[in-house]
Design a protein around this nucleic acid. Structure first.
Lengths: 179, 179
DNA sequence: TCGACCATTGACCGCTCGGTCAAGGGATCT
DNA sequence: AGATCCCTTGACCGAGCGGTCAATGGTCGA
């Protein structure tokens, strides 16, 4: 799976053949189909595991938060750190959105992620930390900032340094606090 | 090109064959290769035209702006309106990022778009409307908000109503104005 | 020592793909 | 009428794909 992830990310999913993968790791083709029912299922499995891993990272990261806004901040930082550490996965996710059977799996993960954030946003509203509003939409916007910055810096090959992370955090938090 | 755009968006680029396209519009295969050197070039051409069209829309939209921040706002609104009007293109763009020869074309368009925004941000800094900072990075974050919200609503099939646009605008502007 | 069984091999299959090209309209000009 | 040129056709091609499977190690319990 690690090797396939790398190849898919470098070459694209369709242009990378099953033969490429098995030849690359020096095994026969049969062994691939012994462990995976199809090439599509391989990618699905890679995506599923990645989403689970990301969410676990986020949850672990925001545990020490003392209030919802700090939780959001820690979540953003964790997401960016994870993205920086898994650039290949990001490319696969991007591709996944362009074909239906992968997109449905991703949509599930995204709904979950946004719901996680929205819960924190709603808490912040309840505690009077920010003005009331559509929590889900705000959570979507936050995801937008983090996703795009992550994508940008993965692409540029730059390490995600503090400046970027701080920008993302500041934009999201002051965006939440409203005009 | 219109038909191919639709098919690519629905089915994915690789799963849609040239035969699908020419059969779909009722012409022979030869006529395709008379007008396009290859299937890849067709997609490249679609993307190139789309990026040009988007930029033209943005430029036209922000002409009546009286100050840089208003320019940014009008640009965001124009981008979201265009995205809502061209959902298929958005899918193709997403796919394009996953394969190198399309990604390079897109990267060029993105650099241009971010530079356009960054110029406005820098102007706003010079005029003292917002605090100084890294204009390009802020422009990147703005693009993140708009892209993601656009993608979200295109996907949900919902029309982009005023609430969404206003949220995007508010997040970006108050994000710019800083803490 | 000998099956039983899990894991592995890679030649092979049918199929579809992107791309080619000889042949054939059908305007337009001479 | 004939020649020229532009556009169009669709049968055809080699290549490479995802996926199969009979054959074959290699390991371990009896």
């Amino acid at each position: 799976m690690a090797f396939a992830t790398r190849r898919f990310a470098e070459n694209g999913f369709h242009p990378t053949s099953v033969s490429d993968i098995v030849d690359g790791i020096g095994v026969g083709k049969g062994v691939f189909y012994w462990y995976f029912p199809s090439k599509d299922d391989l990618l699905l499995e890679i995506l599923r595991q990645a989403l689970v891993d990301l969410r676990r990272c986020q949850q672990r990261a925001l545990r020490p938060a003392r209030d919802p806004l700090e939780g959001i901040e820690l979540g953003i930082r964790a997401t960016l750190a994870w993205s920086a550490a898994n650039p290949e996965i990001l490319r696969l996710v991007t591709f996944g959105w362009t074909e239906e059977n992968f997109a449905t799996a991703l949509a599930k993960g995204r709904r979950i992620g946004i719901a996680d954030t929205a819960r924190l946003v709603r808490q912040a509203m309840d505690e009077g930390l920010i003005e009331p509003g559509d929590a889900t939409m705000l959570a979507t916007a936050i995801r937008g900032v983090t996703d795009e910055l992550a994508r940008e810096f993965v692409e540029r090959g730059t390490d995600v340094d503090h400046t970027v992370v701080d920008t993302a955090v500041r934009m999201c938090l002051s965006g939440l606090r409203g005009r």
